[in-house]
Each structure stands twice: as structure tokens, then as C-alpha cells.
Design a protein around this nucleic acid. Structure first.
Lengths: 252, 252
DNA sequence: GCTTGACCGTGACGCGACGTCAGGCTGTTG
DNA sequence: CAACAGCCTGACGTCGCGTCACGGTCAAGC
């Protein structure tokens, strides 16, 4: 079975131009050309196109999609698992946005108004603790993600606010300690780190000192975490990372 | 309370450049400038920015966002309802994608492979009847959307396939009639339109002839509907639109 | 065999929503 | 008063296509 550009375009719900584009940049190439130079796509190409479209839908730039798909040690099953995870992440995010809009509607009906911070909860505020679980799972092991999912799914709006307040509190104290010149590997900073770890265990998933140390590393290695902490205070990502790892070391 | 560009940017989770851009195109303007020319945003501006970001997240181009927000006869509550509706639409779509990926994983495990059409179900196929309900709600009245939501939520995969097949069938017959030169306002075409209406009533929400006529207008006025029908056959959007409106007229 | 009209090809330019300098002014802090 | 973070306004670059322009290909009907 093989298709022309137009046929494939109709099948996949994209334009012919898009397929031309993907051909030119080498993202999805027709496996053959007819003698007249027409593109001829086979089932394999179609498969690849499907993968591309899913990653695209999830917001990846095309060059990243290319590296993802051309990664030699990623089999189709791995892609599906990743896509599944990303989609569930998106599902959650959308649910959060629905909740936020509903909250705003409610507030409006009651005649009260939310604070700016509350308003941007959904956009600006990204809880690193929550995301951490997914990152853990992404890097290999465990059902941390599933556990986190179960717990956060059962949370009420009030629970969320409490959890967020707890998190903000520790972050603020970390920032204050750093500003006061308290060394990141001091006992005081390590105590904050320990508090951070227990908070995660309580609210998201069992976070052993080892896992926590892994998270600590991610705070400086994964730009998303880094950005989160740097936005609170410059240098905070490194500071928290160091404290967390020092704390894990003293417990072993 | 007022903020500088940088502060607002941090608060809202966007870059300073984005705020500059929104200022230049007149989408979100700071309500004041300091004597030195610094932008100064107040709570009102922040409100507006929030709205903009929500619509942006939902995929609207900025100029459309502008017209949405600057429409003088739009109250904030209507915005919220609309945003809520769009978000729920997106939620559903994501759920469908999750289901599709799960189906693919399952198929892979069982060693069977899906047909190309099945593969692209989520991307290519957009059911206009389903969307119609949201569009209805968007333009004012009724709980059509809610009703459609309730019904489609209860549908199994098989129900969906049946509904889709029914829809495809009528569309094909519309296209055939058009190709055969049957006038759009002929009795035959109107009968097809009537079938279309009853299909919507059965599968999505109560669709009176009046509402149906409104839908018919949308098929040529809303480019998303137009694109859908034009992809089946050029001229079909206008053809269906005319038939549907003629059918509504003969019933009144 | 010839025409017609849908479909295919390759440039090449355009656009939306910013990112990213460059070059210069402002304002706070030690 | 120096240093440095933060603000300003151009202006050009980028990404993912849309949209012509201009010409070749192919199946159908006459």
C-alpha cells in the first residue's frame, strides 16, 4: 500500500505543504519517488508521520521531534510510553486550568476577587515537587508518578492551596538562608532540605533520601527546575541542590 | 498596586519581550508610564493579561484575542463561560488522544496493527456535529453544549464509530448529490438536510429547525466548518448550508 | 489522439509571535 | 559616584508553515 502526498495529507489531516516541508527538512521523507518525481509514501512513512504529529501536538519543535525519533535506542514502545506520559501530564494541566476558570467564575459570583498570585497559579506557578515524580519515572524506575497521581487526584482545592503554601514557605526560607549567607551545606540548610523531603513524602510520593538526592541533582541539570528556582532568587537552584544532596549524604 | 515590566513578567510567567510585543500591538498596554518612560502596569492591566494568556494558551492568534477582548458587548462572565467551554473541549480531545495511544499500545501487545484510518482518528477527524454544540453555546443561548457533553461522555467506542459512520454517510450523499447537479434547495437535498438534523438530535442534542438553520449559516461563516466540508468536496460547505436553511424554511 | 481539470513538482516570498542582540538611559545600593 | 541590575527602543533572526507563481503529469471523456 502506498499513497501520494495528497492522499496522505487527507488521511492525516495535514496540508500537502506540510508534507513538502517535512520532506525538505528530512523529518518525514517519502520512501520512494515515481519516475515522474512524485512522492510515494508507504506504511512505514505513515507510521513515522503519526509519531511526528503526536509530538508536534504536544508542543515539541520539529528539530526536537527529529532527534527524539532518530534516537537509535528508542523503540516504538518507548515512544508510546513517553507520549502517554506527556498526554497525561497535559490532561492534568488542562484539568487544573478548568478548575482555575471555575474558581474564578465562583469568585465572581460571590463578588470576591482573587489575588494576582492566585490568578496566575495555573500559568506561572509550576510546582516542582509535583513534576519531580514524573521526572523520576521518566528516568527509569518506580511508581512514584502513579503514587503522586493517586494522591493529587484526591486532593481538594483547599488541599492544593495548603500544599502550595507549604512549598512556598520552605522555598522562601531557603531563599532567606541563602541571602543571609548561610552555607548551603550547613546544618541549618540541611534541616530545611530535610523538611523539603518530608513535605514531598507527605504530599506526593515516598521520597527516600536517595531519591531526594537525585532530585537535588536535577535542580541544576534540568533547565525547567533551574528556571523555577532561579525565578525565586538567582542562585537558589544551586543552593537548594547542594543542601538537598548534603542532607542525603548525612543520613546514609 | 503597580508593577514594572519585569515584575509583571515574573508574575505571569512570560518574558519581558512578550510584554513589549503586546504593548506594541496594542493588546496589553501599561495604563501608565513613569516620567522616565518606564511601563507601569496596574491590576486592570494584569486582569487583561490573564485573559490574553488564557486565550493564547487555547490557540487563538493574538489579533483574534484582541477582537474577543475588545468586543464592547461582551461581559466578563461570557468570556469565562466561553473559556470554560473551550477548555472542556480540549480536555476531551486530550482524553481521546490518550485513548488512542492506549489503543495503539494494546494493539501492539496483541501483535495486531491498526488501519491507517484508525491511526489518524484523533488528528484528522473532527466531527462538526459535535463542535456545533459548542458553537451554539458560544453564540448565546441554551444548554446544548451541556447536553451534548452528557451524551457523548456516555458513549462507548462503538457508539462513536457508529455516530461517525452515520455522519460520514450523510456527508457522502450530500457530496454525491452536489456532484450529480442536484440543486441545493431541491426537495431531495432538503431531505438529506432533514436527515442530518435528526442525526444531530439523536446523537448530540435537540436540534430544532431554527438551530439547524443557524448551523447552516455557520458552515459558510465559520472557517473551521467551511474547511471541514471543503476538504470533502469543494463547494460542499455552501451546498450543505443552502440545503439546511432551505429545509428549515420549509418546516416553518 | 486531444483536451480538460485535478493533482504533482520546485522555488520564493510572507507572516505571526516572539527571541536575541545592540546601544543607550535609569535607579538603587554600597 | 561607581557599579550593576533593570528599563528603553530599534532591528534583524527564527520556526512552521501559508500562499502564490509557473510548469509538468495523469486519468477521463470526447
Amino acid at each position: 500500500m502506498s499513497w501520494t502526498v495528497g492522499e496522505l495529507a487527507r488521511l492525516a489531516g495535514v496540508t500537502v505543504r506540510t508534507l513538502h516541508h517535512y520532506d525538505r527538512i528530512g523529518l518525514v521523507r517519502p520512501s520512494e519517488r515515481t519516475s515522474a518525481g512524485y512522492r510515494s509514501y508507504d506504511a512505514h512513512d505513515l507510521d513515522r508521520l503519526q509519531q511526528v504529529l503526536l509530538y508536534r501536538e504536544l508542543g515539541f519543535p520539529l528539530d526536537e521531534v527529529a532527534t527524539l525519533l532518530d534516537d537509535p535506542e528508542a523503540d516504538p514502545a518507548a515512544h508510546l510510553r513517553r507520549q502517554h506520559g506527556l498526554l497525561r501530564e497535559r490532561l492534568e494541566r488542562t484539568q487544573a486550568m478548568v478548575a482555575a476558570v471555575e474558581k474564578e467564575m465562583e469568585a465572581r459570583q460571590m463578588g470576591i476577587s482573587l489575588t494576582p498570585e492566585e490568578r496566575f497559579e495555573v500559568f506561572g506557578d509550576w510546582l516542582p515537587e509535583e513534576y519531580a515524580a514524573e521526572a523520576e519515572e521518566r528516568w527509569g524506575d518506580s511508581d512514584a508518578w502513579a503514587q503522586s497521581q493517586r494522591r493529587t487526584a484526591a486532593m481538594t482545592k483547599e488541599d492544593w492551596l495548603r500544599v502550595k503554601a507549604e512549598g512556598d514557605d520552605v522555598e522562601r526560607r531557603f531563599a532567606a538562608a541563602m541571602a543571609d549567607g548561610v552555607p548551603a551545606d550547613s546544618t541549618a540548610a540541611q534541616d530545611l532540605a530535610e523538611e523539603h523531603r518530608q513535605q514531598i513524602s507527605r504530599n506526593f510520593y515516598d521520597c527516600s533520601p536517595e531519591v531526594h538526592a537525585g532530585l537535588g541533582r536535577m535542580y541544576v541539570e534540568d533547565e525547567r527546575f533551574t528556571a523555577y528556582y532561579e525565578r525565586i532568587a538567582p542562585g537558589l537552584a544551586q543552593y537548594v541542590s547542594t543542601s538537598v544532596q548534603a542532607n542525603a549524604a548525612r543520613q546514609s
